[in-house]
Design a protein around this nucleic acid. Structure first.
Length: 405
DNA sequence: CTTCCACGGGAACACTGGGGTG
DNA sequence: CACCCCAGTGTTCCCGTGGAAG
């Protein structure tokens, strides 16, 4: 018998190049984004003429090609800059990772070869270090702030300083591109920053089902081997994703996972059935992942809702009930319970994550509460919570018999 | 019109983990 | 080395507010 891997590598009948379907892949061609690409390129072309490009704000929901477009245009711009000998540096910063003023400037300073510790210094020192780093020569620095809305509260100082930095520079020029999927986030900004950041705006509308099909088709061509994709598969992926505000990333993920399922079940074609299995699998693993990575306190709050649905014969609970249960669980686990105020924050977070459903209802004379209910299957969540050794003790909590007066 | 109480925004506080300085 | 400075995080404290039943 041959090597044990022999079968495993020779069996590649489904994928030709799976990487093409990953969200990090930047394609050569971006269908249905001509207008946005031209708009962006037009605005940035100023940099090649030695002028300062206006700041740009890019809006669009997740998976509408914002990041891909910006990265694509950046690459082209850098190449052209090199060719004609004008210095253009584009720095990509993700606002989710670098979410405070300090971190943004520390990262920027570092990319211009300044040594700055990731914490410890006063912020203005880091800021001047960055300025010193770029002002050594005549150049244009374009700072791309992805998920800039994440910076709006904690890191708004970074936006403010970046928007007025040009008046303090002698040689270099700085402009920024903000990418956001929240259309309303500028409301939280200082008016001066708002007007400066929004000098130019580019909107990325969601893709419709047909456009998604074009995108999928183009990628599938490269990603899959010939004729493994059955007739209805791509339209179905497109349709699922179109329901979710036309999210291309989701559509591509769906297609990839469908292929992986087909591969694993030793099927030599991808069928619509595989796509259906993929949607289920993706939703379940999303929930598992989210619950797993929840902070401990948040897990306890979620457990409280779970415990309540077990003990009582109803689905929705007032926030007071949940908080009482939360205290009981903390007690049981030998932990100090947090205040109610804090717990309402956890409840809101769980709501945003889609694990529970919470609505504020006013009960007139009887004040108001949040009605809370679990919005994921109990059987799915329970085992994951108990995986956390700190929560093991919950499993043997005695079900309190209802006190009836 | 009053009245009820959790909601949720914001200030204040404690703590952490890094820096520089004498 | 001891000591203070600083940004950042997670929390508590304080309080104005919403909105229908009474």
């Amino acid at each position: 018998m041959g090597n044990i891997f022999e079968n495993l590598i020779s069996e590649r009948t489904i994928f030709a190049n799976r990487e093409v379907l990953r969200p990090t892949y930047i394609p050569e061609n971006l269908p249905h984004r001509k207008e946005q690409i031209n708009g962006l390129a037009g605005a940035l072309s100023a940099a090649l003429k030695g002028e300062t490009p206006s700041n740009i704000l890019i809006y669009g929901k997740t998976g509408t090609g914002k990041t891909a477009t910006v990265k694509y245009v950046s690459k082209e711009l850098e190449e052209m800059g090199e060719k004609i000998g004008s210095k253009c540096s584009l720095v990509y910063i993700n606002g989710e990772v670098f979410d405070t003023q300090y971190r943004v400037f520390a990262y920027l300073a570092k990319t211009f070869n300044k040594r700055v510790p990731m914490i410890g210094w006063p912020t203005d020192m880091v800021y001047s270090e960055f300025k010193a780093g770029i002002d050594t020569e005549d150049r244009c620095v374009i700072v791309i702030l992805d998920e800039v809305d994440k910076l709006a509260t904690k890191g708004d100082g970074a936006l403010y300083n970046l928007s007025r930095i040009n008046s303090e520079l002698n040689n270099a020029k700085v402009s920024m591109i903000g990418i956001s999927n929240d259309l309303t986030f500028t409301e939280r900004l200082d008016p001066r920053v708002r007007s400066s950041l929004g000098e130019d705006e580019i909107i990325f509308p969601p893709y419709n089902a047909n456009q998604l099909q074009d995108i999928l088709g183009e990628r599938a061509e490269i990603a899959f081997n010939e004729s493994v994709i059955k007739e209805g598969v791509i339209p179905l992926c497109a349709a699922f994703a179109a329901q979710e505000h036309g999210d291309a990333r989701r559509a591509l993920d769906l297609l990839r996972v469908s292929g992986e399922i087909a591969e694993r079940t030793k099927s030599d074609v991808v069928t619509e059935e595989h796509v259906r299995l993929a949607t289920e699998k993706m939703e379940a693993s999303r929930i598992v992942e989210v619950v797993k990575t929840l902070p401990l306190q948040s897990k306890i709050v979620l457990s409280s809702v779970l415990q309540l649905s077990k003990e009582k014969n109803k689905r929705r609970f007032a926030s007071g009930e949940v908080y009482n249960m939360y205290r009981r669980l903390c007690n049981h686990l030998g932990m100090e319970p947090l205040t109610q105020r804090r717990v309402t924050d956890f409840v809101s977070e769980l709501d945003i994550l889609g694990l529970i459903n919470a609505v504020v209802v006013s009960k007139g004379r009887y004040a108001r509460t949040k009605e809370i209910s679990l919005s994921v299957p109990e059987v799915l969540v329970q085992p994951i919570l108990l995986e956390d050794y700190k929560l093991r003790a919950i499993s043997n909590i005695r079900v309190k018999t209802q006190i009836t007066l």
